[in-house]
Nucleic acid binder design. Sequence first.
DNA 1: GCGATCAGCGGCACG
DNA 2: CGTGCCGTTGATCGC
Lengths: 266, 266
Amino acid sequence: MTLADACTAIQDGLRASQLILVVGRCKVQYVGRAASKLSEGDRLLVIKPDGTFLVHQNAKMAAINYQGPGARVVVEPIFDPNHSSPHAPVQLSVRAERALASGAKEFIDVRFYEVQFAQSFSLKDDTHLKLFGTEKELSTLLMHDLHLIEPGLQPLQRESDVRKGTIDILARDSQGRLVVIEVKRRGAGLDAVTQLSRYVHDLSRRRDCIVRGILCSPEITESSMRMLEEAGLEYYKLSYEIANPSAHIRGLQKKQKGLGEFAGEQ
Amino acid sequence: MTLADACTAIQDGLRASQLILVVGRCKVQYVGRAASKLSEGDRLLVIKPDGTFLVHQNAKMAAINYQGPGARVVVEPIFDPNHSSPHAPVQLSVRAERALASGAKEFIDVRFYEVQFAQSFSLKDDTHLKLFGTEKELSTLLMHDLHLIEPGLQPLQRESDVRKGTIDILARDSQGRLVVIEVKRRGAGLDAVTQLSRYVHDLSRRRDCIVRGILCSPEITESSMRMLEEAGLEYYKLSYEIANPSAHIRGLQKKQKGLGEFAGEQ
DNA sequence: GCGATCAGCGGCACG
DNA sequence: CGTGCCGTTGATCGC
């Protein structure tokens, strides 16, 4: 496929606001929040009607260069400066520009030397993904099953904002103490512990009372567990199943200090 | 394009370990770390030689469903069960399976009802992106210019592991105190403050001495600044430029408590 | 719009 | 391998 044909195909796709696919040998340059250079090689370029601009190599999930929705795409044939008359383009430049929130601009330039394929497609699609097993779902489930953690635990609020973030679940225990519960849908790391610790400290200072903190996650790393214990916080292993219309909590087990095993309360 | 032709095209691409592109009307189902359903609509499917599997809608940067490198892809024509004899497939199933680190498996099933386009491409590309302006680069630059923060500040180590994470820069000030420096390439939020706070507390406890903590970033949110001050930590506004072979630090300015303005030290 | 957090985060580097 | 953490993170939701 000639570069001139590719240029036309891309322009047609841009005008018609279609999905554009280009496969070819190119260099890529990016300047914006960071800067990058990618030397010659074969890549896939995807341009979506909303301005999304993706350069993919032949491996890995992530695009090697990209531009988010809202980018303005311009395609331009490059002619050999040695030839005074413009016969056939020797390169094809596909450029995406975009304004950052700060007002600064960023751009990508993909310079094709050879195009294997370029075509645009009309994609009719107004559907939205339905996702199950998110943290929000688990959190909602857990709030209605706080007795799994301990009897007498009463839910107060979900997603309550404190000055230093958003608490997943706020509850009160049988002795009237506030309990901050942080839910993680996957293994908890140090960040989860610092997060919970932040909420507990903030709340205990503001209300001037003792506040408990409980981390609930399917796993926790060893150093996170140590840090949690040092901070006087509690851990419950959260076991759950993902089902189609809605997830399902299998159980919660308190992890005992210094033991590799669990002692269930249920 | 018939579903049978699409099936052949995909199979050829899989056999030849090529990049495969499919555009068509499909449903998508996913079960694994979470679960999802996406009803009928037109999408782009990208399959890479390494098993990467991407389903893109006509908007947004992120793939709506995906599978990472290592997935095993199987394509299978589905025939109408009412017809005893297999004439033409009524659907085309493209399935990606993958084993998680935990040992559990996850899979996506893309069910095509109609295929506009299906073709595979050979992508020769062994290049790697060169990226400028990363945090690592800024951190290295800053370590050699600690005097920008204050005179007498001496670098000790970069990327030093403490029990609770990895310290960007460890230094010693003119009075012999340890200084933990956390560098962020973009605006700092609460997480950056908790991160720094974590390192400082850990180190001060382990060494049983006073440890200073300094956050360096181009911006910081108001609540983060408040939290930083409450924790007795310091903030320096980091101004930098991204240049081609290497980034360049323009300056560092200490942010004064309670003022919207800066008082430079330089 | 900014701000905080989640994500099926992905990817990397180091122990 | 896990653990930690950066990312041109992106995407969402609340203020």
